[in-house]
Computed example of a mutant assay.
Amino acid sequence: MSDQEAAELVDPAVAIKEKCSQTKECAALLEKFNACNDRVASKSATTETCVEEQTDFLHCVDHCLAPQLFKHLK
């Protein structure tokens, strides 16, 4: 593979993830995650983390991404 070919390679997962994160289901989970982050950031001392919200959002995106991504593999 030449340098030019390597430079032209584009990871299809990036665009698909972006589209998936904007679906109704995933966007709602992203909103919950962002609200959690804002809530945690507004407190000076808290034991709350947003791991559950982040995991839910990433799971949604991965679930949407997987069937679409495998179409691009050779």
Rank of each mutant, 00 (worst) to 15 (best):
T49L: 07
L30E: 01
Q22L: 09
C64Q: 07
T47H: 00
C50M: 04
D3N: 06
Q54E: 12
N34C: 11
V14K: 05
E31F: 08
K17C: 13
S44D: 13
K19M: 07
A28N: 03
K32F: 06
C64P: 08
C26E: 00
S2H: 04
T49E: 07
C36E: 00
P67T: 09
C64L: 10
R39G: 08
A66D: 12
L9W: 01
S44H: 07
D38W: 07
V51S: 12
K43S: 07
P12F: 04
M1A: 11
C20W: 02
L58P: 12
Q4E: 15
K71T: 13
A27Y: 06
R39Q: 12
T23K: 00
C36V: 09
E18S: 15
L69D: 03
A35T: 01
A41T: 01
M1S: 12
K19I: 10
K71V: 15
D3K: 09
A15Y: 09
S44N: 15
A41Q: 02
S42H: 02
V40A: 07
N37Y: 02
F33E: 03
K74L: 14
F33M: 14
L73C: 09
K24W: 01
A6Y: 12
P67K: 07
S42E: 01
D3C: 13
S2M: 09
S42D: 01
D11P: 08
C26M: 02
N34V: 14
N37M: 06
H63F: 14
C26N: 00
V14W: 10
L73Y: 02
Q68D: 13
V51K: 11
A45H: 09
I16D: 00
A27V: 02
A7Q: 11
A45P: 05
H72Y: 11
C36G: 10
E25Q: 08
N37W: 00
L9N: 03
K19P: 10
E25W: 03
S42V: 04
P67D: 06
C64N: 03
I16H: 05
C26W: 06
V10N: 07
K74Q: 11
K24A: 02
V10F: 09
A28T: 09
T46N: 05
I16V: 05
L9T: 08
V10G: 04
D38S: 09
E52G: 13
T47E: 10
C20Y: 05
A15W: 00
S44V: 02
D62Y: 11
S42G: 12
A13S: 14
T49R: 01
C26Q: 04
K74P: 15
T55A: 14
K74I: 15
D38R: 01
D11G: 14
E18Q: 11
E52K: 14
E53R: 02
F57V: 04
V61E: 00
A27K: 01
N37P: 11
F57S: 03
A45D: 05
P12V: 06
K43N: 02
A13M: 13
A15C: 06
C26S: 03
K71Q: 12
A6F: 13
V40H: 00
C36I: 04
V61I: 13
C50A: 10
T47A: 09
A27F: 06
V14P: 08
K71W: 06
C20A: 00
H59E: 14
E31Y: 12
D3E: 09
K74W: 01
Q22I: 03
V40Y: 00
L9G: 11
